[in-house]
Design a protein around this nucleic acid. Sequence first.
DNA 1: ATCCCGAGGG
DNA 2: CCCTCTGGAT
Length: 215
Amino acid sequence: MKTSEILEQLDQMFPDAHCELNHRNAYELAVAVVLSAQTTDASVNRVSPALFERFPDAASMAAAKVSEIEPYIRSLGLYHNKAVSIHGLAEGITERFDGKVPDNMKDLMTLPGVGRKCANVILAECYGVPSIAVDTHVSRISRRLGFADPEDDLLTVEKHLRRKIPKARWIRTHHQMIFFGRRICHARNPECSRCPFVKGCREPNKHFSGNSEKD
DNA sequence: ATCCCGAGGG
DNA sequence: CCCTCTGGAT
């Protein structure tokens, strides 16, 4: 399947794919993105109002103790690490970046809790920088659809995607792949019966690809 | 029971 | 490279 066909298909399936994290400014988005690891956007959105009422800006969160932050995000799981991360994130923003969320990859990556994936999301959402954030969904789907090879690491996957997908579509495609990964192309038991890409898929679900090994 | 939209650390 | 951190959704 050609790249253009895949992109067209994704457009039909998820015409309005977008970041579902609620946020009013770059500070809130940066915090929300870090919190979103291993949870859903909906869960993050649930804790955001109280969290940002208590810590309306980076300075106030930096001034707090980690133990004061934890209760607000406990329901997300991994709460201790996340509290340490967003506290350090707020501290870094206030102390090293004049209270502003950095607008470039290098600086973003120096902030606690912000890896390449989160940095890319921040760049895309806050600053409109065309970017493809490669998370587990995106890398898995890229392999299955043939955008990348099985042995590629995250950075290599990102490179392939940047080369094969038109720049103007990077952000949209990223979100579409996330949606596709969550709704259909799961890691363990992909719902290949609902997938328009099964035929060209490199690692289809055994139950569908093989022949119906019926009972 | 099983899986998550990562990052940091050993 | 592999491990851990955690609760919630399914």
